[in-house]
């Protein structure tokens, strides 16, 4: 029979143990698998070609990447003397991303995010695709030249605080403190260098899984937990200082408890609410020019 022959031929070509170390079961359909893999190989090759192409190309993005060496100066793996030195990996990921997403190019802040992805995945190409998931899909327009999505989300946080923690909102208004001043780093760097590493990674797990709403949950939890402390502020500078303080200490270090809190403390936070606030805040910002 023809199909039996094909099956035997495939069985001769496909190894008994898969690349992950699993022995293939007795009834494994070698023919179907071989057929799938020949199609999948085309996709993998296409991605590999895309990746190598992304590393070449024009130098306009390279020009904007003069500050790479200022990523994690306190991390031994990013030092010039390190072997391998992750600076080179970081450079490749960001250069490739700049070529891939020309509307964004390279924006400061992305280096910290890519840096973490590299530290965790230890892989250039994987870091690239994860960065693309964040910048291209999960975060709404944070890193484009006008940073409108970022500015919008900072205002959205302001509105959420106004509803959920009105005393803090009143304090901010009273001293004329703009939200962008105290939280822009939270949003741009997704809490890198703000919160402890383990906590950041737990937040990112949720971010990849549930989307950008998580950033508001984290921000609201930090503010709510320290509301009384923030309200002690008596000046503009005081407020700025308090917002730095609330990102330190055991509350944020104990990442497991912290993650449980972000889902209970801020209360309900529907995507409908966020979408509505994003729409109105964006419109307001556009009207201001």
């Amino acid at each position: 029979m023809e199909s039996a022959e094909r099956g035997q031929a495939a069985r001769d070509r496909v190894p008994r143990i898969d690349p992950y170390g699993f022995e293939r079961p007795e009834d494994f359909d070698y023919a179907a698998y071989e057929e799938f893999f020949s199609t999948y190989l085309v996709i993998l090759t296409r991605r590999a070609i895309k990746w190598s192409k992304l590393l070449k190309g024009s130098n306009s993005i390279q020009k904007s990447m003069t500050d790479m060496n200022r990523t994690f100066p306190d991390n031994v793996k990013f030092r010039k003397s390190a072997d391998p030195c992750l600076q080179k990996t970081l450079y490749n990921v960001l250069l490739a991303y700049g070529h891939h997403n020309r509307g964004v190019g390279y924006c400061q802040g992305m280096n910290f995010i890519a840096g973490y992805l590299i530290l965790i995945t230890k892989n250039e190409e994987e870091s690239f695709w994860l960065l693309d998931a964040l910048v291209g899909r999960i975060l709404p327009d944070y890193y484009s030249p006008e940073m409108l999505g970022l500015k919008t989300d900072q205002e959205v946080l302001g509105e959420l605080v106004r509803t959920k923690l009105p005393a803090v909102a009143a304090l901010m208004d009273g001293h004329g403190v703009l939200w962008t001043l105290v939280v822009s780093r939270w949003f741009i760097c997704l809490f890198v260098d703000i919160l402890p590493v383990e906590t950041v990674l737990r937040i990112w797990d949720c971010l990849f899984n549930e989307g950008s709403k998580i950033i508001f949950r984290v921000a609201l939890t930090l503010i709510k937990q320290h509301q009384a402390f923030i309200l002690e502020a008596t000046s503009f500078a005081d407020i700025c200082e308090k917002f730095k303080e609330i990102t330190k200490g055991s509350f944020v270090t104990e990442c497991h408890t912290f993650m449980q809190k972000i889902f209970s403390e801020p209360g309900s936070l529907s995507m409908t609410t966020i979408a509505r606030l994003r729409e109105s805040c964006r419109a307001k910002l556009l009207a201001q020019g």
Binding site: D67, R70, P73, T180, L181, S184, I188, C189, A237
Partner: peptide, 13 residues
């Protein structure tokens, strides 16, 4: 010698 990148705005007095 190698200062962290400033993101947004920092503040001193």
């Amino acid at each position: 010698p190698v200062h962290d990148l400033t993101i947004g705005v920092e503040f001193g007095a």
